[in-house]
């Protein structure tokens, strides 16, 4: 198994990456025009494709939940926010204000969503947790408990399926190849899953302790480097974001959160 060379985004220190993404996401909440988040979104997607070498298909699929949420935001704002010049969209006539705000909020969703994908798609969980322990001073008991819980989560779908099968087989009137979907059967399966998860997490806790987690000062065999390039990259991203807003202010399209209540 030869792993491909890690990409620029993968090499970026996870803690710095997390901080940068959080900072930019928070800043994006203060802007309510459509152009700024649209530009940010396009830049992020370009970075994911070019610097993260994320396959287009993966990126598109990962966008699905954000697109759904963005669309609903757009529709709600168009329908409920009157005002502005009437705009004709085919058979519909809507207010320009609602359209502008709705589009801005929808694009902001996509922008923040794609920023979160930078974290999710290009960060190795163990590296993130090691770095958070190393650089953000998070306790190791905390970070590794999260990793172990992550392993438990990965296997929950299989356990869920086994339990659904195990309970379905007891119904003498079941139909072949169908698992029951009644709320009662789902509730019973969820309860069994919960009991199983509690018992498993108990065993995992014992396993974590038996590996000596939390016994005192620990060392790190694969320290995550934190160097000048990591900080420079963060600075560059923040400068770019600042420049984007500055250009918008000069050109006059940037609006703040005041526009929401105007």
């Amino acid at each position: 198994m030869t792993a491909p060379r890690p990409t620029v985004l993968e090499r970026w220190n996870p803690t710095v990456k997390l901080a940068t993404v959080l900072l930019v996401s928070t800043a994006a909440l203060l802007v309510t025009d459509p152009v700024t988040p649209a530009t940010g979104w396009l830049l992020t997607v370009a970075a994911l494709l070019a610097l993260g070498r994320v396959p287009v298909r993966t990126l598109a699929l990962a966008h699905v939940p954000f697109v759904v949420f963005a669309t609903s935001l757009l529709v709600v704002n168009v329908v409920t926010r009157p005002g502005g010049d009437p705009v004709t969209l085919g058979p519909l006539t809507v207010g320009a204000d609602g359209l502008a705000i709705g589009a801005a909020l929808a694009l902001r969703t996509l922008f923040v969503g794609s920023l979160s994908l930078v974290l999710v798609l290009t960060t190795d969980p163990v590296r993130l947790m090691t770095s958070l322990h190393q650089h953000a001073r998070l306790p190791a008991t905390w970070t590794f408990a999260v990793l172990a819980a992550h392993r438990l989560l990965v296997e929950l779908p299989d356990a869920w399926h086994t339990i659904r099968c195990a309970q379905a087989v007891r119904d003498p009137r079941r139909r072949r190849g169908r698992l029951p979907r009644s709320p009662r059967s789902l509730g019973a399966a969820a309860f069994a899953l919960l009991v199983g998860a509690v018992r498993r997490s108990e065993r995992l806790t014992v396993a974590l302790e038996s590996r000596g987690l939390g016994s005192g000062p620990r060392t790190t065999s694969r320290p995550v480097p934190l160097g000048v390039p990591d900080v420079v990259a963060a600075g560059a991203v923040l400068a770019l974001a600042g420049a984007l807003v500055a250009v918008g202010m000069v050109a006059g399209w940037v609006t703040g959160i005041g526009a929401l209540t105007a």
Binding site: R200, R203, L204, A207
Partner: peptide
């Protein structure tokens, strides 16, 4: 249980 005592990936 083999599966419940390995903590990492």
């Amino acid at each position: 249980r083999p599966g419940d005592q390995l903590c990492l990936a």
